[in-house]
């Protein structure tokens, strides 16, 4: 299916929220913007899964994708790092979301809240050791 940038995507009946892909998080990463390396559909699925799983704290949803029991790479940054966690924001507060691979070693604000990390730990997606590394801005491949 073809998706257009900056156009809200209706995700009913799965979820009522809409999603929008933005061009600055596709293509080549810049110093300040990470990019998705998975397909458009995978990006949308990651968001949908976050909403269904209620991996949300405060204003953000947080996403992670698992295939065959393995947490996959979602994106990369200017330093060509493997990024495995996505952050979804509702910029206009109208339940229309967009997201990007979170640069967790660079920005403390790109780190999921403890509440979401605890959900992932309880689900066996990450370990307690992973959670501590992520919160401390340390390298952590899940």
């Amino acid at each position: 299916m073809n998706y257009c940038f900056n156009e809200p995507i209706d995700l009913t009946p799965t979820i009522s929220s809409r999603y929008m892909m933005v061009p600055q998080h596709r293509g080549s990463p810049t110093e300040h913007k990470s990019v998705w390396t998975v397909s458009n559909q995978a990006e949308i699925t990651c968001f949908t899964n976050s909403v269904v799983s209620q991996w949300k704290c405060d204003k953000y949803y947080w996403g992670i994708s698992i295939i065959n029991g393995v947490v996959i790479q979602l994106g990369t940054n200017y330093e060509n790092q493997v990024l495995q966690i996505a952050k979804f924001v509702d910029g206009a507060s109208n339940d229309c979301w967009h997201g990007y691979p979170a640069n967790i070693q660079r920005h403390p604000g790109d780190i999921p809240s403890s509440a979401v990390l605890n959900l992932w730990q309880q689900s066996g997606i990450i370990s307690k050791s992973d959670k501590s590394k992520i919160k401390g801005g340390k390298r952590c491949i899940l």
Binding site: Q105, R106, H107, P108, G109, I111, K135, G136, G137
Partner: peptide
């Protein structure tokens, strides 16, 4: 401010590491 870590010295000064901030 979101922070990664903190460290105190013996004089009550505390270094605060904030990633790219």
């Amino acid at each position: 401010c979101p922070l990664f870590s903190l460290m105190a010295n013996s004089f009550g000064q505390i270094a605060l590491s904030a990633g790219d901030e």
